[in-house]
Computed example of a mutant assay.
Amino acid sequence: MPEIEIYTKDYCPYCKMAKAILQRKGAAFLEHSVSDNPELFDTMVRRAQGRRSVPQSFIGGVGIGGADELSLLQERGQLDLILQGERSTLDTDEPCFRCLVQ
């Protein structure tokens, strides 16, 4: 399974939802709380290509997005493929998945 990182804030319901999606998959992830850490927040914004909202998740170093994107990937059955490292199976015509194509 590729490395999973998620940037969160302590009080964020969307962060809790994103973490719950990954936990239901049995996916281990490294959580970075940006609640009181401006330097870490700046790192997240840089990695997320300017996106400032939390959560921001990265799987295998690739920016996935937030809870909505994770939920949509889950609904489409694509999250399992990403977690297995099979990103090439994604529908690249979907705007929210363009960041996955390298």
Rank of each mutant, 00 (worst) to 15 (best):
C96V: 14
L79V: 05
E69W: 06
I64R: 07
L79D: 01
C96L: 05
E69I: 14
D93M: 12
C96H: 04
S71R: 11
G65Q: 01
Q78V: 06
I82P: 01
Q78Y: 07
S71D: 14
G77Q: 08
Q84S: 12
A67V: 02
L70V: 02
L83D: 09
R76T: 11
G85S: 09
E94V: 15
L83H: 04
L72R: 05
T92Y: 14
D93G: 06
D80F: 01
Q74W: 05
L73A: 15
T89I: 07
D80Y: 00
L83A: 10
A67R: 02
L90N: 09
T92M: 07
L79H: 01
A67P: 02
L79I: 12
T92I: 13
D91I: 03
I82Y: 00
P95E: 06
L83M: 08
L83F: 09
L81T: 03
L83C: 08
L81W: 08
L81C: 13
D68T: 12
E75N: 04
A67D: 05
G65S: 11
G77D: 08
T89W: 07
E86M: 13
R87F: 05
T92S: 13
L70D: 03
D91Y: 03
I82V: 07
L72Y: 11
E86P: 00
G66S: 04
T89S: 15
E94K: 00
S71N: 03
L72A: 13
Q78I: 10
R87W: 08
L90K: 03
R87I: 14
L70Q: 02
G77P: 02
L70N: 00
D93N: 07
T89A: 14
G77Y: 02
D80N: 07
E94G: 01
L79G: 04
Q84H: 04
L73G: 10
L72W: 08
S71W: 08
D68A: 07
L79A: 08
L90V: 13
C96A: 12
D91H: 04
D68S: 06
G85V: 12
D91W: 00
G77S: 11
D80H: 03
T89P: 04
A67W: 00
E94L: 15
S71A: 12
D68K: 06
L83N: 12
A67C: 14
L79W: 04
T89E: 13
D68N: 06
A67Y: 00
R76A: 14
T92C: 11
D91E: 13
R76D: 11
R87L: 13
D80E: 15
D80L: 03
L90C: 15
R87T: 00
E69R: 08
D80C: 06
Q84L: 10
D91A: 03
G65Y: 02
R76Q: 15
L73W: 01
L81R: 08
D80M: 02
D68R: 03
G66D: 11
G66Q: 05
L72H: 04
D68Q: 11
L83E: 05
D93S: 14
L72G: 11
Q78D: 13
R76W: 10
G65E: 04
Q74S: 09
Q84T: 01
L73V: 07
G85I: 12
S88T: 06
E75C: 08
T89M: 13
L79R: 01
Q74N: 11
E86V: 05
R76E: 15
T92Q: 09
T89N: 10
E94Q: 07
L81E: 14
E94W: 06
P95W: 05
